[in-house]
């Protein structure tokens, strides 16, 4: 039996890289006692396939993996979606959660299910401005310009907020609920930013300097941006569901970019490329540390927005 599992990765485990996530699930499956199948040979490995890797620091509600199990567990009890989900869930620790689990059919032609990895065509991302940063309008040479600013006490400023020079001062880490110094973005700025983003997306082409193995290449990524939007914390642009944001952190500035981009082995566009191009369009500097990227969903068919 093949099960396709959609899972979320959130919180502190966002710092765990893809290979370690794979190793985590191999161990979790063993702890769960799922009757997973193994490959043949002297060093058998579990039949487990992951879709697109997720970068370090990125959270997600839309990760996928396929596992192949025996039809029944070691005691002869038949496997089902419910049982598989219960077993695997019991072995997962905070930061990993099953969003959905379904059995997928064998392809009668190939006598093998379609591989999760090979199916990926597109992905949705939400990119949020983090606490400690703001986007401000500044008046330079008679022209309004939007720039990313970090507060003096923002985490990338010389002194982090949870650090004090005075040895006896209370640490912020001791009081996790201490109010954050960041303010929500004012309505006027948000509206202006939305206008600018809409204008940017409507450009005929969006050319970026894409780094490849063989060097740098000017590439138009416009055809690979399938949908987009900019929203505050209370809204989600049309076409982007809410399920994909369930495990995403919410940040005070309330500036969230939504992007549906080409993904997978043919053309894979990272959301930070779009953001970088946008800030370049604004004539200001992009700061990758100012944003939290969250993968919402992955698609096998981008036309029908069919999920895996």
């Amino acid at each position: 039996m093949i099960f396709r599992i959609r899972f979320a990765k959130y919180g502190v485990v966002k710092f765990i890289g893809h290979l370690d996530v794979m190793r985590y699930f191999q161990k979790a499956v063993r702890r769960s006692m799922l009757p997973i199948k193994y490959s043949q040979g002297f060093n058998p490995h579990q039949l487990m396939v992951f879709a697109q890797p997720l970068g370090v620091g990125v959270t997600s509600d839309g990760e996928y993996m396929d596992i192949e199990t025996e039809d029944a567990d070691s005691k002869g009890n038949p496997m089902s979606e419910e049982i598989a989900r219960t077993m695997l869930s019991s072995a997962l620790t905070e930061g990993f959660e099953i969003v959905s689990l379904r059995q997928i059919p064998w392809d009668e032609g190939t006598k093998h299910p379609e591989n999760a990895m090979a199916l990926i065509a597109g992905a949705d991302y939400m990119v949020s401005l983090k606490d400690g940063y703001s986007i401000k309008q500044v008046n330079a040479a008679g022209e309004n310009k939007l720039v990313i600013a970090s507060k003096p006490d923002a985490p990338d400023a010389p002194d982090a907020p949870d650090v004090t020079d005075a040895p006896d001062a209370p640490d912020v880490t001791d009081a996790p609920d201490a109010p954050d110094a960041t303010d929500a973005t004012d309505a006027a700025t948000l509206t202006y930013l939305k206008e600018k983003f809409a204008a940017f997306i409507s450009e005929k082409e969006i050319v970026i300097n894409k780094k490849t193995k063989s060097g740098e290449k000017m590439t138009d990524i416009k055809p690979y941006i399938y949908a987009s939007g900019l929203a505050g914390n209370e809204e989600i642009p049309e076409g982007f569901g809410t399920i994909g944001t369930m495990h995403a952190d919410i940040y005070t500035p309330g500036i969230r970019f939504f992007l549906r981009l080409s993904a997978g082995s043919v053309v894979n566009i990272k959301p930070e490329l779009v953001l970088e191009a946008f800030f370049s369009y604004l004539g200001s500097e992009y700061n990758p540390l100012a944003f939290q990227i969250h993968r919402m969903q992955m698609y096998s068919d981008i036309e029908k927005t069919e999920s895996l």
């Binding site: 985490p155 880490t173 540390l289």
Partner: peptide, 10 residues
């Protein structure tokens, strides 16, 4: 989930 001692930036 506990807050981390180190910021995301670090």
């Amino acid at each position: 989930m506990r807050k981390l001692a180190l910021s995301d930036e670090v």
